[in-house]
Design a protein around this nucleic acid. Sequence first.
DNA 1: GATTGGCGGATTGTTCAACAATTTTCGGCG
DNA 2: CGCCGAAAATTGTTGAACAATCCGCCAATC
Lengths: 235, 235
Amino acid sequence: MDTLTDGAAEHAHTTSWIASVLRGRIAAGELTPGSKLSEEPLSAALGVSRNTLRQAFTTLAGESIVTRIPNRGVFVASPGVEEVREIYRVRRMIEPAAVLWGDLTPEVLHNLEEIVQRAQEARNSGSVTDMADANQSLHRAVVALTGSASLQELMDRVLAEMRLVFYTMASAPDFHSHYVDRNVALVKQLRAGEREEAAAGLRAYLDTAEAELLEHLADSALPAGAPGSGAYGTR
Amino acid sequence: MDTLTDGAAEHAHTTSWIASVLRGRIAAGELTPGSKLSEEPLSAALGVSRNTLRQAFTTLAGESIVTRIPNRGVFVASPGVEEVREIYRVRRMIEPAAVLWGDLTPEVLHNLEEIVQRAQEARNSGSVTDMADANQSLHRAVVALTGSASLQELMDRVLAEMRLVFYTMASAPDFHSHYVDRNVALVKQLRAGEREEAAAGLRAYLDTAEAELLEHLADSALPAGAPGSGAYGTR
DNA sequence: GATTGGCGGATTGTTCAACAATTTTCGGCG
DNA sequence: CGCCGAAAATTGTTGAACAATCCGCCAATC
């Protein structure tokens, strides 16, 4: 009994392996939003059959990491204003809900405090990416309060899409630095057990963050011949 | 965000067509939880290639309507106690959140009132299935208050899984009849604008519903040689 | 007699080559 | 300049093949 299907698993089997490879490349920014993923070249480059690549595509399409247009091909998702609004619609529900009704254990609180501390250090050292990472970690940890794998998964998808949004913006201004203090305050409120105040503050934070993001998105509007962007009129 | 429950729709393209067919058969109870979906017979029966059936499988697996076990096959998902807990973890977050922070327009309120009225009529006429349908419609409509397609999609998945839970239970006692009044009260509170009370009541309702369901599930525990049941975590 | 080991059959995972359907490109023509 | 139409390219689907893995069965061993 050595070989039991251990969770982590190496390459589960080629299809999911390929899916995770593509997921990684997109997350790393190697594959930029809007770029087309042609089947024949990609399958050759990855050394897999066009057929299994296709299967990986359906997986990624299900995660809305990639958009598939019939008879046209698949493209790296390039979120527009509508997608950003949807992202914040989701966050404005599940994050405050987690704050209000989540399971606040001492170790989770400690974890949250550690994250905001990391964010503060990142701000001091001026590392924008570290600050962004810490910020995402924090909000991810907040949703973890729900204890729900499904909600966690949804939040992960949302955060991944968020990263895509940042990639689409030509200029990436410092969104995060002036949110660090808000996060500190949030965690402090949680520590104090002031859940309703924390939830209200979080909703306010999400509102302003959305507004700022939308504004910058409108500015750096690269019309882009790339499909999948912006408003689709379905079909 | 286009796919999933995209109405009747003509066969957009075979793969998604097959996926929706299977989705429908599972929802209709023709394919019971735990039953195996063998590739060769099924592809023959559906008149499609084994390869495209396989692609449809990955779609359904992504929606966790079906569980795929490597080298063993795919099975209709058969939710157990852990899955039920997860379902209610989700519902206990997003439904009260929708009640608290959703967009309460007059027409939506009217819609909700119509649904509870339908439930009452169903109770009077003693139709259990109609009552169950009305109940699901109500909670679906509650989540619709969020205005978020992603949350709606998640809720739809949860409700679909819920139906599978009912299928697994040998005896289906009348869960819904004594929840009708609660739903009436909920809508009344929403009409009165008492959101916090509504949210609190909803959470209490979900708690008791989960407890009852878990109890009945423990009773009618068909151990079932069928795989796919029981706890897996993570995706 | 029960457990272990291996053997064959069946099913899944993946690849390859082809063809139909559709989009895209490109060139000619009004 | 723009429209039309045919060729080329790409996607969607099929069918057959093969490797890998799992399952049940039978025999060998202790």
